[in-house]
């Protein structure tokens, strides 16, 4: 287990280094930042001074070394547009995105898993067929369209829920939360559903197909032949055996939820990291773009690491440090 963890951590560091390199090269190729920063009537001396200040005249390996060292300490430079530290900007926006993504993930898992189990167990039932048909909508409709439809129905026609923003947020230390005020809670419903819908149908279909697969296996037949109750067979034996692939997918999906909340955040004017990133793209604010890239990669690496460790918890075959084999015939 320890050796495994160390190996995975080294891999994670390697991945982060490569991502940092990509993020760094954005500065080299996406235009000259100095043009963005100086006034139109700046002299060449002003520009040169700024270059020197920003370290743009150093050799590239030195620049990358400085960049990586700073990034590792959470220092991503100053936003061209906002003229504030990128790390502060992102930290301000992160609670909004994380709350939205986690709410969506919980929603997707809480509804997707039971529906997947149900449709897997009763695949010929009427309700299963209805759910499967409806799930095609979740799979095939693009997120922005679902968001707009939801806004139209619940905000415009019915007027039940706000159509944009986070509503009233409550400050808990450095964290701004949606969950502590009524308007905050109301505000998160539509974006969370929008973001969750695809994931939910995806998880449901995944669990369903995994259940169908597992229910055909010999050990399920044997469990039935031993007279175990349906509950023990379906949940104790079948569902648990679907967990390894399901954990992988849910984990990676959580990463995508954070990364691709961009669209939902745009549709709902949600003041999260995605919106910040999109604004940064429009004005070529490279420090924000590169920091966002590194941050998202970091989330993926961390989630992957957790998923790998969960495998160990779920599947005893992977716990290699236990004594194996022994005995014959």
């Amino acid at each position: 287990m320890i050796a495994f963890l160390v190996r995975r951590l080294l891999q994670a560091i390697a991945v982060m280094a490569v991502v940092a390199l990509c993020a760094f090269f954005m500065f080299q190729f996406v235009g000259d930042p100095v043009n963005q920063m100086v006034a139109e009537d700046a002299t060449d001396e002003d520009r040169e001074y700024l270059r020197e200040q920003l370290g743009l005249n150093d050799p590239i390996p030195v620049q990358f070394g400085k960049f990586a060292l700073n990034a590792a300490q959470g220092n991503f430079g100053v936003s061209y547009q906002h003229k504030r530290a990128v790390s502060t900007l992102i930290l301000e926006r992160m609670p909004a995105t994380l709350e939205l993504a986690v709410t969506a993930a919980i929603l997707a898992a809480l509804l997707g898993v039971p529906m997947g189990v149900y449709t897997g167990l009763r695949r010929d039932g009427f309700a299963s067929k209805v759910i499967m048909t409806l799930s095609l909508i979740g799979i095939s409709l693009p997120t922005f369209l679902i968001g707009i439809l939801l806004i139209y129905l619940f905000a415009v026609i019915l007027g039940w829920l706000p159509s944009f923003g986070r509503g009233e947020v409550v400050q808990v230390g450095a964290w701004e939360s949606n969950f502590l005020s009524a308007s905050g809670l109301k505000s998160i419903i539509l974006p969370a559903i929008t973001l969750a819908l695809f994931q939910m149908t995806f998880i449901m279909r995944l669990i369903r197909s995994e259940m169908l697969e597992v229910l055909r296996t010999d050990f399920i037949k044997f469990a039935r032949a031993r007279g175990l109750s349906n509950r023990a067979v379906n949940y104790g034996h079948a569902l648990k055996n679907t967990l390894v692939p399901v954990i992988t997918i849910i984990g990676l999906q959580l990463g995508s939820l954070i990364a691709f909340a961009i669209i939902t955040e745009t549709v709902f004017q949600w003041p999260g990291m995605g919106q910040l990133f999109l604004q940064a793209v429009q004005v070529v604010d490279i420090p924000i773009m590169s920091a966002y890239l590194i941050l998202i990669a970091f989330f993926f690496v961390i989630i992957n690491l957790i998923v790998d460790m969960l495998y160990y918890v779920v599947d005893p075959r992977l716990r290699v440090d236990q004594p194996t084999g022994g005995g014959h015939g």
Partner: peptide, 22 residues
Amino acid sequence: RKIRGRRIGAIFQDPLTSLNPL
């Protein structure tokens, strides 16, 4: 179900796949 395992036991062909690996 109450008869299976209690009054009639069963053994299947492949012992490698008859047991739940988890």
